Amino acid sequence: MAKRRSTRPAPQSKLKKYGRILGKVILWFIGITFFWVLALKFINPPITFLMLQRGIEQKAAGKKWKIEKEWIRFEDLSDNLKKAAIAGEDVNFLKHWGFDFKAMENAFEKNQKSKRVIGASTISQQTAKNVFLWPGRSYIRKAFEGYFTGLIELLWSKERILEVYLNVIETGDGLYGAEAASWNYYHKSAVSMTKQQAALLVAVFPNPRRWSPAKPTSYIYRKQRLILRNMNRLGKLPF
């Protein structure tokens, strides 16, 4: 009597099938994200996940939905603000390709000795996080951040990265970008921001809902002085 053949697929064929599916998913992901990043080289991001989250949090707390933002072109932004952002957030912005490994190493060493966590994200990393990703801390989100950082460094110019960064960054409760912040705190456009004003605004970037240029603490004033010193060391920017 002949033995019946099993109709159950072999484990190896299952692996090949799943491998093909995974390969297609990865290719689709790379293709979609590549063209997404390429499109935003020319199109200004209308909104970010952080803006939506903050708006939902405001509504949940019984507050009014508030998203104040106004895009301002790179060439119209104050040179003082451009220099302050680099001096305060990423002094090697013009030299690296998205990641400042030396700064990461220094931050890691300092974090081992201090209770206060020091970040080492570059302007490119922060832009990738703000524009393409959801807020939060996880290894998965950090991996995506690294991927999108590489893409914007590949497809965008340094000018475009800095332009997007200064237009989408959270600058206060319901405030996003330098222009909205400048009108709110200094009652004028970011076009004419002075060195002192630019340095003071950048000093609160790490936590704009806790700190404000309108009511600077002694700590914020110390950061402002440090940023001003770094601005002087930077000299003239190439753009």
Rank of each mutant, 00 (worst) to 15 (best):
M1R: 13
M1V: 13
A2M: 10
K3E: 13
R4Y: 14
R8M: 13
A10I: 12
A10K: 15
Q12K: 14
S13L: 11
K16I: 15
K16W: 09
K17L: 15
Y18F: 14
G19V: 11
I21H: 10
K24G: 07
K24Y: 15
I26R: 10
L27E: 06
T33S: 15
L38N: 03
K41V: 07
I43K: 06
P45Y: 09
P45N: 10
I47L: 09
T48Y: 00
M51V: 00
L52S: 00
L52N: 00
L52V: 00
L52I: 01
I56E: 13
G62L: 07
K63W: 10
K64G: 00
E68N: 11
E68C: 01
K69G: 00
K69R: 14
I72K: 08
I72W: 01
F74A: 15
D79F: 12
D79A: 12
L81H: 04
A84H: 03
I86G: 13
E89S: 12
V91Q: 08
V91G: 01
L94Y: 11
H96Q: 09
G98H: 01
F99I: 15
F99Y: 11
A103P: 08
F108Q: 10
E109G: 03
K110F: 04
Q112D: 06
K113N: 10
K113V: 01
S114E: 10
V117Q: 11
G119W: 05
S121C: 13
I123S: 07
Q126E: 12
A128C: 08
L133R: 10
Y139I: 14
I140W: 14
E145I: 08
G146D: 04
G146P: 02
F148S: 09
I152Y: 03
W156M: 02
R160M: 00
R160E: 03
V168A: 00
I169K: 04
E170H: 06
G172V: 07
G177L: 01
G177T: 01
S182C: 13
W183V: 00
N184K: 13
N184G: 01
Y185P: 05
K188I: 03
S189Y: 06
A190L: 02
A190G: 08
Q197L: 05
A199G: 02
L200I: 11
L201F: 06
V202L: 01
V204E: 08
N207M: 12
R210Q: 15
T217W: 03
T217H: 06
Y219L: 12
K223Y: 12
Q224V: 03
Q224N: 02
Q224E: 10
R225V: 04
R229T: 07
L234H: 10
